[in-house]
């Protein structure tokens, strides 16, 4: 199978800032679990990557991209992008990442293997930066009002505010 930039980005396991690990602990079930289990624990996200996707689009919407230094990165990851669900949403996230990078798509056809690898790391960093930006917005809101996200629909309303 010929390698392409999309496949290379899809196999990446993006990270998030260490400092935001508590947000994942607080709002998502780390290893999944049943819906009932999640509801009982008052967690809004069934998987870590859901909170990750939520934060990515929040950063994207608010144009907040905060680059993540290697030392700041969390040790745990949120699974490879190709495993995220739903698939259409995952693809859309990839499309947005490519769009934000802005490289004309025809150029990818001429890139050699090593160049594609390098580019895929750059694209992963775009994903991580927007997510980092989104998480910082959530943190700000959470610190202002610790009970804000305990209210029903708070994450939904936060999307549309």
């Amino acid at each position: 199978m010929e390698e392409n930039i999309i496949r290379k980005l899809m196999i990446k396991e993006p990270k998030f800032g260490k400092r935001y690990e508590y947000l994942f602990e607080r709002f998502s079930r780390k290893w999944g679990g049943s819906e009932q289990d999640r509801r009982d624990r008052v967690k809004d996200f069934a998987k870590n990557y859901e909170l990750y996707i939520y934060a990515f689009f929040l950063g994207l919407r608010k144009h907040k991209s905060v680059e993540l230094e290697g030392s700041e990165k969390s040790r745990s990851n949120v699974m490879a992008i190709r495993d995220w669900k739903p698939e259409a949403l995952r693809d859309y996230l990839v499309a947005c990442t490519l769009a934000e990078d802005g490289t004309p798509f025809r150029e990818y056809d001429f890139m050699k293997e090593g160049e594609l690898d390098k580019k895929s790391f750059e694209l992963r960093e775009i994903v991580e930066s927007y997510t980092n930006g989104g998480l910082s917005i959530l943190e700000e809101e959470f610190k202002q009002d610790k009970a804000y996200f305990d209210k029903p629909f708070s994450f939904t309303e936060f999307v549309f505010e």
Binding site: F57, P86, C96, E100, P152, F155, T156, V159
Partner: peptide, 24 residues
Amino acid sequence: DKANRDLFECFWVIHGTEHVAKKF
């Protein structure tokens, strides 16, 4: 639960990023 799921399954979470879709 449905609202939490619809954020992802109905894609509400992408609200406000349509300008990036246009770029793509």
